[in-house]
């Protein structure tokens, strides 16, 4: 066998291994990224959606935040305007987490319709677009 053929053989093995790792990795760790409405639609037709890893993107519903500081427990509702889900999270949330902010909730949907979050990411969408105070008055 020529060195070139040997190299191609070795390269083939490497590529197949990496491809296998990728496929397995996506199968085992890939999770649906859904809005609350999409989640509701899926759950209605497919009971396997319970208790599997999901990511939900939406906004924190106004007035829904309930913190219990001593036990580090946080309850809130994630909504896309049409459908909302209650979320329970134990742990420290990022500084940017407040009412109405855009969040990504990672966790699973339990049978009682609550999302048990393992991670809450918050994004401050208004940061770069804030309207200056008084701009309404002067224009």
């Amino acid at each position: 066998m020529s060195p070139r053929a040997k190299f191609l053989l070795g390269a083939g093995v490497v590529v197949l291994t990496v491809g296998f790792l990728m496929a397995e990795g996506i199968k085992d760790t890939g999770v649906y990224f859904l809005t609350p409405s999409e989640l509701a639609a899926r759950v209605a037709g497919d009971s396997t959606m319970y208790d599997v890893g999901i990511r939900i993107g939406g906004n924190v519903a106004n007035g829904s935040i309930d913190r219990h500081v001593a036990s580090l427990t946080l309850k809130f509702e994630v909504t896309d305007g049409a459908v909302s889900y209650p979320v329970v999270y134990v742990g420290i949330v990022p500084d940017t987490f407040t009412e109405d902010v855009e969040v990504v909730v990672e966790g699973r949907l339990t049978r009682d319709g609550t999302i048990r979050a393992t991670n809450v990411l918050a994004k401050c969408g208004s940061r770069y677009e804030a309207v200056p105070e008084g701009s309404q008055a002067s224009t």
């Binding site: 790792l21 990728m22 397995e24 990795g25 999770v31 649906y32 990511r55």
Partner: peptide, 11 residues
């Protein structure tokens, strides 16, 4: 479908 740190670390 999103993949996160577990996927990247594993591969």
């Amino acid at each position: 479908v999103t993949v996160g740190p577990p996927f990247f670390n594993r591969v």
